[in-house]
Design a protein around this nucleic acid. Structure first.
Lengths: 159, 159
DNA sequence: GTTTCTGCAAAGGTTTTGCAACAAA
DNA sequence: TTTGTTGCAAAACCTTTGCAGAAAC
């Protein structure tokens, strides 16, 4: 476990474990650390690989069980990228209101945030007689540069 | 097969089958009819039940194969309701730009459309260097009435 | 008559679970 | 010591697929 977990995050982890009366096992620490020190989205299997780099004995069973806990505690969120496997996103801790744009040309995921759209979502929700709880937008799009120039500039990190 | 398929829809079905050189089998007709005459969202298994009410010999294999065709032809769309099973929505033929609000209290799905938010999504997409292809919003919310009065008025059809 | 389609049953892939051994508190 | 947790292997679940017979064209 190279890098330490961000103190604020670690505190949230601790608070959750305490509130639920959950034990601090080596396996949980390893999986939680792996999940929360990356800024990439990942599948259960990818997280399993990450955890196994730290501790090769990590089992899939424990991984799935810990994953449920992380989602329940909102330290991790399941997102819909239109793929068949569930994808987890650890970035809602830093950007609680971000959304996802999926490039149909290179499959790259661009995260974006927008205050106006967020407000509009809240308005619509209230107008319908509800109280907003969570909102997510998924946009599928094509790369303009690719279409014009034949190469996908966006690949170099446009986010 | 009680009700006829809307002529415009039937035409799109026909055009798709022709373009792909696909045969008009009884099984396809039954499944497509079941899928496109409902306005409810459904899972593969629910559609299987619907199709079996018309023809009990309908197999799951053919159902899944036909489902793929319908999604490919855009006559049906997979949507993300945050459930574990894939949910299909036949309503994009009538309202091509609708979105979904999920009531956390009664699980009801409210479909809504909004021009402003649609425009804003397009703006954001272009600003990021992309060309919009498809957009979807999912809002999870609590029922205001339920909170105030103790009963969920929304159940009676607020959409 | 060809070619495509169907249904079956088996396989595939991901996620969950029962249980005995083990570790935290 | 008590209670929660792990890993294994099996099960559960949804979806896909190979193949032989059946149906469309």
């Amino acid at each position: 476990m190279a890098r330490r977990l961000d103190p604020a995050l670690q505190q949230r982890v601790d608070a959750f474990l305490d509130a639920k009366g959950l034990r601090r096992t080596k396996q949980r620490e390893v999986i939680i650390h792996a999940a929360l020190t990356t800024t990439e989205h990942f599948t259960a299997d990818e997280l399993w690989e990450m955890a196994r780099k730290i501790d090769r004995t990590t089992s899939r069973a424990t991984l799935y069980r810990t994953l449920s806990l992380l989602v329940e505690s909102k330290l991790l969120r399941e997102i819909d990228l239109g793929r068949d496997q569930t994808v987890y996103d650890p970035n809602f801790n830093e950007s609680p209101n971000h959304n996802h744009l999926i490039c149909l040309d290179c499959q790259r995921i661009v995260e974006f945030e927008d205050t106006h759209i967020s407000l509009l979502e809240d308005c619509i929700t209230r107008r319908l007689g509800f109280q907003p709880a969570s909102k997510s937008i998924r946009i599928e799009a094509n790369c303009q540069e690719l279409k014009k120039t034949g190469t996908c500039k966006a690949r170099k990190g446009h986010a």
